[in-house]
Design a protein around this nucleic acid. Structure first.
Lengths: 215, 215
DNA sequence: GCTGGAACTTACCTAGCAGTAAATTACCTT
DNA sequence: AAGGTAATTTACTGCTAGGTAAGTTCCAGC
């Protein structure tokens, strides 16, 4: 009987069908890219994680940039879809923050590091991967921008003589994105936390923040 | 009269004293390391920015890690000092957030990318630079942890039957750090904004956040 | 039992980058 | 003028990591 685990160094097939192998590679690559960034990640390290040679990655996905793009696309699609739905489902932007966070956590479950794949800045700016990442980020940013603007308008100056600084909404967008990034960071270091537990935790934190800032 | 700007390719001195050149190099390196991360930054690129050869960087600072450490140290010292003072100057942690942000902005003015030098994760973990970065981050984390805990305790559950989740404070720490990082990101893209303007902007944003979450 | 294709590796090439030794230029001092 | 020293480059080495060509093993179907 041939061993299920084929001997290591040998050249032939290991009986893993291509589609399955590709999924393994994508999972490992997403983790590695998310942790070390595009430049810091190495093809050989990803391959070793899967138990395979880097040549196979190239044969299945092409160049490093192409592999990155293959990691990026599913997260981008999932996140854009989930965030759009979360925003649409919230009547006012004032109620959006928590549903948005819940959407992020559920979309990211099963590949949390993917968040950093989407927001990595280390790619060659002219690559297809960089263009795709920019595109996804832009889509998310449009949602965040409208939400930020609405929040500032609604909770804006009691005295209408104080005009809104138009840059405030943009800055709020960045602050919010940073906040989410920080929470995802924490979440990665606590793998046992479910998306739901995270959402509840965020609700508690926001309540505390409201008590502090709303005085 | 010898030309002030010495011809490019020539080998001899250009009349720039070492101390001054070192400052130029540190400034350029901080920007490059902050933008591209440790792995993404290249000695040659930094040198070119200064108008000098990479050999000179090695002669003045040693290896790449040493140059990184030389960039890291001043920011680390400044930030730890400024944040400690800001926390000590605030009576309660509930009043600390804005003074802390102001301290960050003023400490970072003149080298905003340095924030990302401190929080870059791409260094070889056993290097002296990584150890120093961890140490500075730990010092800042201790301040942030005590502040986070105090905030949650003060604004905590009205019903004392609901015990505080001890992980909440840790998560809040990460969220706060991410928020600051996001604001620094925005600040870098708006170089004309003074630290003071940033602090005022943050005050407005926090007020809006309080109005949203404090309902 | 042979053949074809799918899965996988070995061996190699190449570019870019960290790092170094030695030479070169300019200035200052005596 | 001569010599020393500070500032700087040229030219090199070695390694690592992306990428490729060609080969090897295994299985399925005739």
């Amino acid at each position: 009987m041939p061993p299920v685990t084929t001997s290591q160094g040998r050249a032939g097939t290991k009986g893993v069908p291509r589609a399955h192998r590709e999924q393994q590679i994508l999972a490992a690559a997403t983790v590695e890219f998310g942790r070390r960034g595009y430049e810091g990640a190495s093809m050989a390290a990803i391959a070793e994680q899967v138990g395979v040679t880097k040549t196979l990655l190239h044969q299945y996905f092409g160049a490093k940039q192409d592999l990155y793009l293959a990691c990026l696309t599913p997260v981008g699609e999932r996140l854009v879809g989930a965030l759009g739905a979360a925003m649409a489902g919230s009547g006012s932007a004032l109620d959006a923050p928590l549903p948005v966070l819940r959407a992020v956590f559920t979309a990211l479950e099963g590949g949390r590091e993917a968040w950093f794949v989407l927001y990595d800045t280390g790619l060659p700016p002219e690559s297809e991967a960089a263009r795709a990442a920019r595109s996804y980020r832009a889509a998310i940013d449009r949602l965040a921008a409208s939400g930020s603007a609405e929040v500032l308008r609604a909770s804006g100056p009691a005295d209408p003589l104080d005009a809104l600084d138009p840059l405030d909404a943009d800055a709020l967008k960045y602050a919010w994105r940073g906040l989410v990034t920080g929470l995802v960071h924490w979440w990665i270091r606590h793998p046992e936390q479910s998306p739901d537990a995270m959402a509840q935790r965020c609700a508690r934190l926001f309540a505390a923040a409201g008590a502090v800032f709303g005085r």
